[in-house]
Write a protein that binds this DNA or RNA. Structure first.
Length: 572
DNA sequence: GCCGTTTTCGGCCCGACTGTTTTCAGTCG
């Protein structure tokens, strides 16, 4: 899929045109198109072939033409021309925090600087100071920004960000600041987050920002005003705090949760109603008509409360206006976990311990799904081992009250598409999840054929962590996603949404496509110990971001209808 | 460059902080 590639090109085109002083709204249009492409759940090439590009909001005649040009020729004239006559390190320079297009332009015009290395040298040599708009402090900040960039402060995984923010919130509460909540992309539960945003309400904003900037985990104060402050922690995380009066807390929650694109759309909508929305409230003229809580803000604009996980400007505002907002799946809807490991392979805890922990959560069922022999290093089971495990699960199921245990497996998909256990064994199990754990670098055609073969095996109920990506560590393997999704839809094979914050695989965007194609999704933790059963929240949030409702999620079903679905699909 | 319960032309979100400014531009979110 060229979706991301095209998204990157339009984003870069926007940066370059902004640098060249092009009409800012045109620049904005390219940025919007870039985001629309990145969020697209279908293959852009398919849309182009079927002449449906213009159906995507943000893509009009001109951009559709550019997309087609790129898909057909591998080039985009506008993009390549725009790059002419710009510094070759422009994009890297623009990525330096605090350094924007205007300043880069001034520096380039006066000193002919083209790259970050030249920029750094000139700054150290004192050549920048004295240029228009550049004083000593500004130069100092640029050098600091370059250092920060070098440290390659990557986006943080949601699973790492949430504990960090919860720790800060807890400390602020301990200091007597009661109304303080996480906001930003973290509240929207994006798979990774850049900055961590925290919002507080109180009359004494100076005291609150001071408390924040003096927390022990703060390594550096990046900015501090009366109502907002930014710090960098010792772990290298940037945390932003915003303080608002209590009467504005809801409006501020809304504003500070974003996304930026969602907020822009809301304010646009407000304007049409002769209203103004900002972080302090909704205003008609001077009069504040909403803002104490989030629901009132949306209501004032004629909308129902939109869940934070949907606020990405991916059609949620249109859906809300039409009264067709999805009733997204909630953690409480989940009735069981269909992929967990035990000490029969590489898990830490026993069948009974996992069952007890699942029961304590309130689950109706749990599928024991250990590894197979190909993963010998992880204690993968061969035929004999699996037969024994099957008996052990049946015995435990009879013994343990209050929760049903399913005999499952996470069977390996070999490089040639065959499975790691014979059908004879698979047929005896309640649920079969098939996953790729080897030969990740296969060419796309082989990997596609491999996944298609697994989907076509009538014993395979679910495909585990479909793309194999590990956030920040390993790219998804190369394969024809759309072809695989189509085949899964045809064979009524479910897809796993692996809830582990390192995976979150399938992604929110793929969830949305699965929903459109009528593919059932199983949200599983892949827990290797009892604590990891709690990771379900990350999977559910990702499912929400993919607009999944309870009916789209296999493990929201009560035990009986789950079993009926499993038996039914094998009889087809 | 996109888009339409003001509009096929004329709009396009809104505010805080910083540094360099004698009244504001640049950057960020």
């Amino acid at each position: 899929m060229k979706n991301r590639e095209l998204a990157r090109i339009f984003s870069e085109l926007a940066d370059v045109l902004e640098y060249k002083g092009e009409n800012p709204f045109k620049v904005g249009a390219y940025r919007r198109a870039s985001r629309a492409l990145a969020d697209l759940s279908e293959d852009v090439a398919v849309l182009a072939r079927e002449d449906r590009l213009r159906e995507v909001p943000g893509i009009g005649e001109a951009i559709a033409k550019k997309i087609k040009e790129y898909l057909e020729t591998g080039h985009m004239k506008r993009y390549e021309e725009a790059l002419q006559g710009t510094p070759k390190g422009l994009l890297e320079m623009l990525a330096i925090p605090g350094l924007g297009p205007k300043t880069v332009a001034v520096i380039n015009q006066h000193l002919g600087i083209e790259t970050v290395a030249e920029l750094e040298e000139a700054a150290r040599a004192g050549k920048l100071e004295g240029l228009p708009g550049l004083g000593a402090r500004k130069v100092e900040n640029i050098l600091h920004g370059i250092t920060l960039r070098k440290q390659a402060s990557q986006r943080v995984r949601l699973g790492d960000a949430i504990p960090a923010v919860e720790a800060i919130v807890a400390q602020l509460r301990a200091m007597g600041i009661e109304r303080v909540v996480p906001a930003g992309s973290l509240r929207r539960m994006r798979e990774t987050v850049g900055d961590l945003d925290i919002l507080a309400a109180g009359e004494d904003s100076v005291r609150i920002t001071k408390a924040f900037t003096s927390l022990p985990m703060v390594a550096e104060v990046l900015a501090a005003g009366e109502t907002r402050a930014s710090v960098r922690t010792h772990e290298g995380l940037q945390v932003d705090l915003r303080v608002v009066p209590p009467a504005s807390f809801g409006a501020a929650c809304q504003y500070f949760t974003g996304s930026k694109a969602h907020n822009i759309r809301l304010r646009d909508l407000a304007k049409r109603h002769n209203l103004k929305v900002n972080e302090y409230g909704v205003f008609r003229g001077e009069k504040m008509i909403a803002g104490a809580d989030e629901e009132s803000v949306y209501r004032a604009l004629g909308l129902p409360l939109i869940p934070p996980t949907l606020r990405e400007d991916r059609g949620e505002i249109e859906a809300a206006l039409a009264g067709q907002l999805p009733r997204v799946v909630e953690l409480e809807d989940i009735r069981g976990d269909l992929h967990v490991h035990t000490d029969w392979s590489d898990g830490r805890d026993s069948i009974e311990q996992m069952a007890a922990a699942a029961k304590a959560i309130g689950y109706q069922y749990l599928a024991i799904s250990d590894h197979t022999r190909a993963l010998k290093v992880f204690g993968g089971l061969d035929e004999t081992g699996m037969e024994k495990l099957l008996r052990a699960v049946r015995e435990a199921d009879a013994r343990v009250k209050g929760i049903r245990l399913l005999a499952g497996v996470e069977v390996d998909i070999h490089a040639d598409g065959s499975l790691d256990l014979p059908d004879r064994i698979l047929a005896k199990l309640d649920i079969v999840t098939a996953s790729v754990h080897s030969a990740f670098k296969q060419p796309a055609e082989k990997m596609t054929a491999r996944l298609l073969a697994a989907i076509r095996n009538p014993h395979v109920d679910v495909i585990g962590h479909l793309t194999g990506r590990l956030l920040g560590e390993r790219e998804a393997y190369d394969f024809d996603l759309e072809a695989v999704l189509q085949e899964a839809a045809r064979h009524h094979t479910a897809l796993e949404l692996n809830a582990h914050p390192l995976r979150l695989d399938i992604t929110d965007v793929v969830c949305r496509r699965a929903r459109d194609l009528g593919i059932m999704v199983a949200i599983n933790t892949d827990a290797h110990n009892t604590e990891q059963l709690q990771l379900m929240r990350f999977g559910v949030a990702t499912a929400q971001r993919g607009w999944l409702e309870a009916a789209h999620v296999l493990n929201t079903r009560p035990f009986r209808t789950l079993m009926a679905w499993l038996r039914g699909r094998r009889c087809r």
